Amino acid sequence: MSNITFNHSFFSYPQSLKDLVSEGRVDFGVWYLMNDDETVRRFRGLQTRYPERTLYPFARRGDNDDIACFEDVDSTLVHIIHDFADSGWEQREVLPNIDAWLEYIEECNLQDGW
């Protein structure tokens, strides 16, 4: 298993995300930050499944196919994507930034008893 760096040539991930890694905050109950290998694999898969979008994944929900991504259109927004859904049905949520995503996953954990 590789490290979590978010240093990929295909996207410049925000410093706030890299700060979570440097602080050791990579596991968030039902959600977790993906390691570099999984990030690259999911990036390539998303390009195949949703060719009309450019999604850059960084986290995954462990109990279903939801993943958190940035999108080329606005790289500050966090998109919750239900991966493997039919194209056009994949979008679950759009959050304004990483801090809002952290609040969202805290709510997910409360709802799921984590």
Rank of each mutant, 00 (worst) to 15 (best):
I80P: 05
L33N: 09
H79V: 02
W89R: 13
R44D: 12
H79A: 02
G24D: 12
R53K: 14
D66N: 12
D66W: 15
F28C: 08
A68F: 02
R53I: 00
R61E: 10
G88P: 01
Y56Q: 05
S22Q: 14
F70P: 07
D86M: 06
V21G: 06
E71W: 07
L17E: 08
Y50N: 07
N35R: 11
H79W: 12
E93H: 10
D37G: 09
C69E: 00
N64P: 06
G24I: 10
E90Y: 01
I80E: 03
Q91S: 13
D86Q: 10
E38I: 09
R42W: 11
R60K: 15
F84Y: 11
C69S: 08
A68M: 06
R49M: 09
L77T: 09
Y50F: 14
L77D: 12
L17V: 09
I67K: 00
Q47H: 07
F84A: 09
I81Y: 01
I80G: 04
D83V: 01
C69Y: 04
N35L: 02
D86L: 03
E52M: 08
D74V: 09
S87Y: 07
E71C: 12
E71T: 12
N64A: 00
P51W: 05
T48S: 11
H82R: 15
S22T: 15
V21W: 10
R60C: 04
G29D: 08
F28P: 00
D86N: 02
T48H: 09
R49V: 01
D37K: 13
F28K: 00
R41P: 02
R41Q: 14
V73M: 10
Y56R: 11
F58I: 09
G88N: 03
E71R: 12
E90P: 01
D72A: 10
T76L: 12
K18T: 05
V30Y: 10
A85W: 04
E38F: 03
E38H: 09
G29K: 05
D65S: 15
D37P: 05
Q15S: 15
W89I: 07
F43L: 07
C69L: 03
L17I: 02
